[in-house]
Design a protein around this nucleic acid. Structure first.
Length: 601
DNA sequence: AAAAAAC
């Protein structure tokens, strides 16, 4: 109720300049790299290798489906960390999931997800699939149905089952046939429901014979790249690449994860012409086009992952340039995302030909398996202490913490480092190498808390991730849905906590609506808030994560001691891992049903 | 509506 009064006044005012000195102390001092971490990312950099799966690929994925991070009260973070691994092993019954912040004890709705209809119901009903468009091919029931209807290389189905893909998800049942029939597609399916596989499988099925081993009989496919996948971030591109390697096992398809390094490797046309698939971020590809080091004339399949992001202002000109370079008459395009605002969808429709639109579940909805809660923290200064309390009690670990800017990510990372948390950071100001290592440490289970910016909000799949914290309030409903969608993937449970302050009032209502419509309790006054109008949003960018004037630990630089401490922390974390107490341990390789999860968007 | 990300 106190919150309501504060909120109805329209939020507190902040003096940004006041904190600029503190900010300078923090600025660009964050070094996330650790000499101890062995990032085995070289493989993914060399796109020309048809190589093996990175060792770490499946380490962190597929944690148990049941249970939460809540347990013994008052336990410190380290004790907690150790307890959690054990918990995950024998946890079958769902523990008390009411977090300290949970507004009420109301039971969650479980009918918003897939598979709520009886098993005998048609697939479209079971998965809540709605399609529009002409001549929509019927969905499949099982992956094996595909070979009855289409010519599928048997190797592909073998690779599917060998990587644990047993039953197609909703988007896969409908999306795969559509793409196999070479139709354009706009696919909207919640986070963690296997969108990546939905487009990768048809790409490989169409490729059939690798460019490098083409015979006269199959030479009609022409020379050069035949499939192109675009992603808004490097990390997601890398993840898609890793997923594609799963399907590519046993055949010499050449898949290129486009980077500066690969650009140089591809100087000769003969090398380039043997590429089958390119996975890239837009700008990287555009610069290659400008340098004339890549041709896209032979591309017949094009996928826009996180399409609504790719079609935002900043990316759009690059996207247009890339589409312009794909001149093959049989070019088919597909856009995929968990969210597709109407305005962006109409842009997509403008370059799709007679598209089929598939919506799984409700459009712009959060995944049903994520527990969502909104936590009032008063003002900016309340965030850090609330987070410290969370970390000291029963945090959902591993945890991804979203902040609004790179500066704030670096600061919060430092703060938590001082607290002795196995924390890491990822934002776009870091070098490519630092970013790779940060992701790698996360996948290896060396990191319990990753502080990050929006760069990690979409597509990333840390299968074992138990929680997402919106330390800074998300700037849009789409951002919220994608951020919290980093957890609760493939039907597993996840915890999403969102801090809000008085200053977040203008957009609280729209996020509260998402929480509410997902079946989670929300105070009625939140839903009754006025629509976001012209109330000015606070600029968080330069706001230090903690105000100096309220004491505790304010801005400090990094000293030698801190570096040592960091190394020790990683070592300790490794020891825990070695003794089997850390996520990333092989024991977590499967979920409660012993089944593996599907790929991702 | 706005920062972040894309090189």
């Amino acid at each position: 109720m106190e919150a309501f009064h504060l909120l109805s006044r329209g939020g507190a005012k902040f003096n940004k300049k006041r904190f600029s000195k503190d900010l300078q102390l923090f600025h660009s001092k964050s070094s996330s790299s650790s000499s101890d971490s062995k990032a085995s990312t070289e493989k993914t950099l060399d796109g020309l290798k048809t190589g093996e799966l990175p060792v770490e690929l499946d380490f962190f994925k597929y944690a148990p489906a049941s249970g939460s991070g809540s347990g013994g009260a008052g336990a410190g973070l380290k004790a907690k960390s150790e307890a959690i691994a054990k918990e995950q092993d024998d946890q079958r019954e769902v523990a008390d999931r009411s977090a300290p912040s949970s507004p009420t004890g109301k039971k969650r709705k479980r009918d918003a997800g897939e598979d709520s209809a009886p098993a005998s119901a048609p697939v479209t009903l079971r998965h809540k699939i709605a399609t529009t468009g002409s001549n929509v091919p019927p969905p499949i029931e099982r992956f094996s149905d595909l070979s009855d209807r289409y010519r599928i290389p048997p190797l592909l189905l073998k690779n599917l089952s060998e990587h644990g893909y047993t039953t197609p998800t909703g988007i896969q049942t409908q999306g795969i046939p559509i793409l196999l029939e070479s139709r354009d597609l706009a696919a909207i399916s919640p986070t963690g429901t296997g969108k990546t596989l939905s487009y990768l499988f048809p790409i490989f099925a169409h490729l059939s014979v690798p460019s490098s081993s083409r015979t006269a009989e199959s030479a009609s496919t022409g020379a050069g790249v035949r499939a192109l996948i675009l992603s808004p971030t490097r990390e997601l591109a890398g993840q898609i690449y890793n997923e594609s390697l799963k399907l590519a096992q046993g055949r010499k398809w050449r898949i290129v994860l486009y980077s500066k390094a690969t650009g140089a490797t591809l100087a000769q046309k003969e090398v380039r012409d043997k590429i089958d698939i390119i996975i890239s971020t837009p700008l990287r590809l555009v610069s290659a086009l400008k340098q004339g080091t890549i041709e896209l004339k032979n591309v017949r399949q094009m996928v826009f992952d996180e399409a609504d992001r790719l079609l935002e202002q900043g990316f759009l000109p690059q996207i247009e340039e890339i589409i312009g370079a794909c001149t093959h008459p049989n070019l088919r395009k597909a856009v995929f995302s968990a969210t597709l605002p109407a305005g962006v969808e109409s842009i997509a429709k403008s370059f799709l030909f007679d598209p089929i639109r598939v919506v799984v579940g409700l459009k712009d909805a959060a995944a049903a398996s994520i527990k969502q809660s909104l936590v009032y923290v008063g003002s900016e200064s309340g965030k850090l202490s609330t987070l410290r309390q969370l970390l000291a009690s029963s945090p959902p670990l591993p945890l991804l913490v979203f902040v609004q800017s790179r500066e704030r990510a670096a600061e919060l990372h430092q703060e938590l480092l001082y607290d002795g948390v196995a924390v890491d950071v990822l934002h776009a100001e870091m070098t490519a190498k630092q970013r790779e290592e940060s992701v790698s440490r996360m996948r290896q289970g060396l990191t319990w808390v990753m502080v990050c910016t929006e760069v990690m909000a979409r597509g990333m799949d840390f299968g074992g991730l138990r929680g997402v914290l919106n330390y800074d309030f998300p700037q849009s409903v789409q951002s919220y849905i994608h951020r919290i969608g980093r957890t609760g993937r493939a039907g597993r449970e996840g915890d999403a906590i969102t801090y809000f302050t008085d200053a977040d009032a203008p957009y609280l209502k729209s996020i509260a609506n998402v929480v509410h419509s997902s079946g989670w309790p929300v105070p009625s006054w939140m839903l009754a808030l006025p629509k976001p109008s012209k109330i000015k949003r606070r600029v968080l960018k330069k706001m230090p994560v903690e105000r100096k004037d309220i004491g505790v630990v304010a801005g400090r630089g990094i000293g030698k001691g801190d570096a040592v401490r960091r190394r020790d922390m990683v070592r300790a974390s490794k020891r825990r891992k070695a003794s089997g107490d850390v996520p990333g341990d092989g024991e977590r390789g499967k979920d409660a049903k012993g089944r593996r999860s599907e790929g991702e968007e």
